[in-house]
Design a protein around this nucleic acid. Structure first.
Ligand code: FES
Ligand code: FES
Lengths: 141, 141
DNA sequence: ATAAACCTGACTAAAATAGTCAAGTATGAA
DNA sequence: TTCATACTTGACTATTTTAGTCAGGTTTAT
């Protein structure tokens, strides 16, 4: 059970963006250098973040990205949804009435994994980008 | 972020074992048939469960496995530890002072992932095999 | 004896991940 | 206008992980 780099990078990059977000947009190049993430990979990630209205791009010289909403209103769950980083604990299709082993009733553990999925998603629903930035400021003092 | 089949199978097999655990040991063959899990794969999993004292083996004809502790005292966390199914959310080595991107201080998101890891592990520490079996009995009524 | 069932280690196909690479397009500034 | 910067897109690929399979045992109740 592990988090992928894509998810980690997306949040890390947005945290960086939120931190350095003044009047000027932040270039992916800067984020790449500061956070040590491949520029090409960042571009893939930000393409999805833009399509899902988490960030807004500013083209041209001195261009870059800015947050499209307030940091307070961007929850981790929005970020993960945007980049297709899903929490998947059950094996079966949830809607289908078939169990993961092909039988007609749900398997012995189905409910358990479903509970786990909710437990994890609750965490993502609560945490916002703002929480993250605040935590970093506090640590620095 | 997903659960592996190994983890899923281990818990499913132990739930089956707890459910059918009478005086007689339960053979992997039976579990394999009932739960639709490859016998060879089950053997790998049970080898670890035995070494970690979750189950006890009974060799010979009519042999099989029995739980080594009460279902109440077997938490999911014990099972996952036994089979090396780890929850890994941070990228860096926790002990090391280096961050995941090679810098000397922890990255912007380190604390967040660490919180998430605790959040998930708390779930595993609370749930026992007994909870699982109970849930299934209730559903059946 | 023999068959059932545990036990072990090595091997491998398939899938997912974590990127790289190439070839653009748009725009602000000199 | 020209140029550099930076976004944009899509295809490609090496690496790693996963989810098993396979072969060859050993133990023990009957
Ligand atoms: S996980 Fe849904 S039926 Fe097994
Ligand atoms: S996850 Fe620990 S430093 Fe980045």
């Amino acid at each position: 059970m592990k988090l992928t780099s894509k998810g980690r990078y997306a949040v890390m990059a947005l945290a960086d963006l939120a931190k350095f977000d003044n009047i000027n947009p932040v270039s992916l190049r800067d984020i790449s250098l500061r956070q040590g993430i491949s520029l090409d990979y960042l571009e893939q990630i930000f393409s999805k973040l833009r399509k899902n209205e988490i960030v807004q791009s500013v083209r041209g010289t001195q261009g870059g990205y800015i947050l499209k909403k307030k940091a307070k209103d961007i929850k981790l769950t929005n970020i993960f949804d945007a980049i297709d980083e899903k929490v998947k604990t059950v094996q079966c299709k949830k809607e289908s009435k078939k169990s993961c082993n092909g039988k007609s009733t749900k398997c012995l553990t189905h409910n358990l994994w479903d509970e786990l999925e909710n437990h994890i998603n609750n965490f993502f629903k609560e945490k916002s980008l703002e929480d993250l930035v605040k935590d970093n400021i506090e640590r620095r003092i």
